[in-house]
Design a protein around this nucleic acid. Sequence first.
DNA 1: CGGAAGATTGAAGAAACTCAATTTGTGTGG
DNA 2: CCACACAAATTGAGTTTCTTCAATCTTCCG
Lengths: 244, 244
Amino acid sequence: MAVTSFESSLRQRCSNCSLREICLPLGLDAEELGRLDELVKRRRRVFAGQHLFRAGDPLQALAAVRTGFFKIYEVSAGGHEQITAFPMEGELMGLDAISADVHRGNALALEDSEVCEIPFTKLEGLLSDLPRLQHQFHKLLSGAIGNDHGLMMVLGTMTAELKVAAFLLNLADRLEARGQPRAIIHLPMSREEIGNYLGLKLETVSRMFSKLRDDGLIVTEGRKTEIRNYAALKDLCLQGSAHA
Amino acid sequence: MAVTSFESSLRQRCSNCSLREICLPLGLDAEELGRLDELVKRRRRVFAGQHLFRAGDPLQALAAVRTGFFKIYEVSAGGHEQITAFPMEGELMGLDAISADVHRGNALALEDSEVCEIPFTKLEGLLSDLPRLQHQFHKLLSGAIGNDHGLMMVLGTMTAELKVAAFLLNLADRLEARGQPRAIIHLPMSREEIGNYLGLKLETVSRMFSKLRDDGLIVTEGRKTEIRNYAALKDLCLQGSAHA
DNA sequence: CGGAAGATTGAAGAAACTCAATTTGTGTGG
DNA sequence: CCACACAAATTGAGTTTCTTCAATCTTCCG
């Protein structure tokens, strides 16, 4: 018992979370963190292939990825699937559900994962009391819009090669923001899922991986990818969208 | 003077605004509306071709379109422009700027327009006091994410013909939500701007307009477009994305 | 170790793009 | 009000890019 309570006080708190600089509680003081801590239901496990929520589910809680990787996909009226995000550690899922109190997207774990759940109604109550948390939450929502615009730019302006390059760079930068080496990327998603996300067919994605490999920008070993020349990859993206 | 004050009390209030069911103040009571009213700076004019804000400008105020039409476009590091939205009456602009306190996008008036400006810091203060307004604001932010996902679906899964059809349907539905006839659409944007938004070249957009016209779904007269067969246009979009 | 799913590569086809010419629309000054 | 000039839109022909179809090859589990 003593051990359990020790562990829970040590590990299961936002204040000790290694993701607190990325996740919701960024920039809160100890008292504010304590209030938030009370709300958060931590370390719910979601195994690879399982859904955390599905489109149509009522919004109960927002979820932050603690460990692992998810894909969020929406299904159109015509039945087509479109992946809208690949959330990783520290990223929130379900923000688009606030609008209608119902999830638009489906959240599927790509590998065994853990999430922290934050009951949304309770969170909104807390936001009224804690202006800094409120502002932080607005920044998160706004940032999600900005991320989506970034993807629109990729989808709307880039060729297949640039899309794949931008995809890898995006992952690299997000890994780096978490203190991990940006050069080594383990892709938990298939070529088909990457293609769906980027508006390409899986064969095209595969071809572009091969091309980037042949050009010496990356090294591929199945789903393990290493960025060999980050600067060149970045240049490729920049100059690529410049010719318009 | 008496007339002026009469007019201002009659016209220049959210409570009398014809857009209150679409814009921010949805579902507020009289007292809450009054508090919001105090913040809003109304009827700032922006003439066609003028910018309301530009990327890099510090976020001072969110802006709601009162009359007219805007385009929001972002410029990538490589210099490519991507239009991310065409806001019309009742729609908010600048939500993506909260994240970094700086505008990401540029807001250009496509026709002579009027906007209501809401100082953002003051708004956040008010949100803490008015839970219903806070919730409404969160719904708006969340809805913006949902809209973006809808566009991603269009960009990622649809052919040129379907993209244009979906674009027209989107406009039609938004007009209808404002009590205007959904069949008659005056497009304030050029073919090139439509193409930029949809990830197509202007010639392709033109061709698809012609195709939809030849198929009897729409009638075109320059930028004036009439939807002749709404149901068929909708079917086209649905079945189109089903084959995957 | 064997089977199935995922990934790669090739060749042929379709979709959208580029380049170019023509037509239409718009606004301005005579 | 018309004529002119300029910008936008349309249409055509040829090319590029991506997709489709198909055949391997690899990886990952049981």
